[in-house]
């Protein structure tokens, strides 16, 4: 499986459907704070940024994990977790530059996007095509750079919505 989530940033309207679809699939309830995807809205500058797990080549979350819960799956290359052993210390949350580690307050563990086993609920429900699931080799040209650029434009994190 060489597909990854991609964001086409200008298409995001910030509706939050992706968060609700994620939360209800993974936790059986509509609670945006449980979603493995976050949305920042900059009211001052006028844009929305979905923040997703980048499935990094050398993930900081894996590096800092005290319990060796997080690791790269050698077959798929995605970051996976043995949540049974997670102690909920949230060090990975601090380390992740994309805020893609989500604290699951029901089970007191940290989780990240597992691409729903190849059928991501967030992509399915996204009404504008801002979220896409595509092959690494056909990654949207510049999409990641554009997302990173927008992310870096949020000067004041508190002046935005995130769940």
């Amino acid at each position: 499986m060489n597909k990854r989530l991609q964001v086409e940033i200008d298409k995001c309207t910030g509706c939050g459907l992706c968060q609700l679809a994620c939360a209800v699939k993974k936790s059986q309830q509509f609670d945006p704070s449980l979603a493995r995807i976050k949305i920042y809205r900059s009211e001052a500058q006028g844009f929305n940024v979905p923040l997703i797990c980048q499935q990094c080549a050398n993930p900081p979350c894996v590096t800092v994990c005290l319990m060796n819960v997080a690791d790269k799956d050698p077959n798929t290359g995605i970051t996976v977790r043995e949540s049974n052993h997670c102690i909920g210390c949230r060090a990975c949350q601090v380390a992740c530059p994309f805020e893609a580690c989500t604290y699951d307050h029901i089970n007191d563990v940290v989780v990240n996007c597992d691409l729903c086993g190849g059928h991501p609920a967030c992509v399915e429900i996204c009404p504008t095509g801002a979220l896409q699931y595509c092959d690494i080799s056909t990654t949207l040209a510049g999409a990641r750079d554009a997302a990173a650029a927008k992310r870096s434009m949020i000067p004041d994190r508190e002046r935005s919505r995130h769940g």
Binding site: T13, C15, G16, F47, N48, P127
Partner: peptide, 13 residues
């Protein structure tokens, strides 16, 4: 204008 804004769960924006 540039871009659209949605309320919660809106598919229209």
């Amino acid at each position: 204008t540039h871009g659209h804004i949605a309320c919660q769960s809106c598919i229209i924006a």
